[in-house]
Design a protein around this nucleic acid. Sequence first.
DNA 1: GCCGTGACGATTC
DNA 2: CGAATCGCCACGG
Length: 106
Amino acid sequence: MRTTDSFFERVWAIAVKVPRGKVTTYGAIARALGSPGAARTVGWAMRAAPARSRLPCHRVVNATGDLSPQDIFGGTGVQQSLLKSEGVTFNAQGRVDLKRHLWIPA
DNA sequence: GCCGTGACGATTC
DNA sequence: CGAATCGCCACGG
């Protein structure tokens, strides 16, 4: 219902709403958009996300709490460092503690 | 309108 | 838990 009704734009709109210190999953965003099976498309939107945007893509992880390809953030462990700086905790497997930081777009 | 692609998800081994 | 497989959906060519 917006001229910019591209699926990507909606994904980005939600990603920006992710509160600091929390993380969300691709599936959660897809679900919020009404397409629970479009998790892959959500991830694609992140990959295609314009760097100029304030898109905190580092706050978006997959359902397993695993982080995205670190190469994209310009280095290995960059995303994890960013999240840690915001108060996000990780388990021994280097995954985000979804039990504590999972945020679902209302 | 079909084909290929992909920062996923869930299931199965 | 880790790896592999199938299924899902939206976008570009």
